[in-house]
């Protein structure tokens, strides 16, 4: 059983590993300076913010939703925290207070998302698009239309730019911690299993006694929490917060999710997929800059993503059937089933 699972998941991973390897080999041939520890660390650092936000989005996607307001949420939380910290002369206590307030706002918005979606039955698309507008509009109210800066040496600066052993950027550490926590919640807690159950079939989950409303609310709150953390570390790394902080990051998050093999219709997806997806996105960005293909960044991204996604689905449906080719009819049947889910 365990062995079969491993083999199956390996087959699903093949296209991603191939994509990863292909880019690697290509880079190795083209650019010698690609292979250096500092470059690899930089790639991971550059995707840490997306990675953290993707981990939060994973909860929402697993229950069959989406949060389009993530970027605006990140910007608002960062702005709130920076403004409070600045008014408190950048002391540690003011910074902490700022983070707590930002987190409280994030949780409140997450709860409201859940409330609108489950209780009032408004589709998640509309809810999160509307809150995106509202949160984006609220940022200039918080910052009085300015950028909020922090100076070097302040606690926020340490949050964003310190390095462990002078080599590993602290953003990477946050990414790893958030990914581990997400993995733990999804795999080792009852809540995680319920999330998968709801995403797989909400009606059935309701019948077996899972409180769909409550768990949906929690998922959305976890998502906004991740947006808050992502926004704060992004702003702390740039040492400034304002309307552009996190602007349109939800697009990158979605990109990372689909490359990572997460089914946006809900029910399927793992943390390792998210991490891997984020890394591929970072690697593509790195590749494009290395090769001076800046004009074609989006094209290269789009092409690689589409190929990876198509190939992974084809191998997935094949691995679902076991081995070999068994004729078209069976494949079609499996596909239809996969689509129904």
């Amino acid at each position: 059983m365990k062995k079969e699972d491993l083999a199956r998941s390996f087959k699903v991973w093949i296209p991603r590993i191939i994509a990863f390897g292909a880019i690697f080999i290509f880079m190795a041939i083209m650019e010698q300076s690609f292979f250096s520890t500092s470059n690899f660390i930089e790639i991971i650092r550059s995707v840490s913010v997306y990675g953290v936000m993707s981990c939060g989005m994973l909860f929402v996607v697993l229950i069959g939703g989406l949060d389009l307001s993530m970027g605006a949420m990140a910007g608002l939380c960062a702005s709130i925290m920076f403004v409070i910290a600045q008014n408190g002369a950048n002391s540690l206590s003011a910074t902490l207070l700022g983070f707590v307030v930002a987190l409280a706002v994030a949780l409140a918005v997450g709860w409201l998302h859940g409330f609108f979606i489950t209780t009032l039955k408004i589709p998640f698309f509309v809810v999160t698009l509307a809150t995106k507008y509202i949160l984006y509009g609220a940022i200039p109210l918080v910052t009085a239309g300015k950028y909020v800066y922090v100076r070097g040496g302040s606690p926020i600066d340490k949050i964003g730019t310190s390095r462990i052993f002078d080599t590993i950027p602290i953003l990477v550490v946050y990414f790893v911690i958030i990914a581990l926590v997400t993995w733990f919640i999804l795999n080792k807690t009852v809540f995680g299993r319920r999330i998968y159950a709801i995403g797989g079939n909400p009606t059935a989950a309701g019948f077996v006694g899972i409180k769909v409303f409550k768990n949906t609310n929690i998922a959305y709150m976890l998502c906004t929490t991740a947006a808050c953390i992502g926004g704060v570390i992004l702003a702390a790394n740039n040492q400034q917060a304002g309307t552009t902080t996190g602007n349109a990051y939800e697009g990158m998050v979605l990109m990372a999710m689909i490359v990572g093999g997460i089914n946006l219709a809900g029910g399927q997806g793992t943390v390792s997929g998210v991490v891997f997806g984020a890394l591929i996105i970072g690697l593509i960005q790195n590749l494009v800059t290395f090769m001076s293909w800046g004009d074609y960044l989006k094209l290269v991204q789009g092409a690689i993503i589409l190929i990876v996604v198509i190939v992974s689905v084809v191998t997935h449906t094949r691995s679902m059937r076991g081995k070999g080719r068994k004729g078209r009819k069976l494949l079609a049947k499996v596909k239809a089933e996969a689509q129904d889910e």
Partner: peptide
């Protein structure tokens, strides 16, 4: 046999590019 969400999001990135 991709789901609509994933397929069209990915192809959308390609068209945009």
């Amino acid at each position: 046999g991709l789901t609509e969400f994933v397929a069209t999001l990915a192809s959308g990135f390609l068209f945009l590019g």
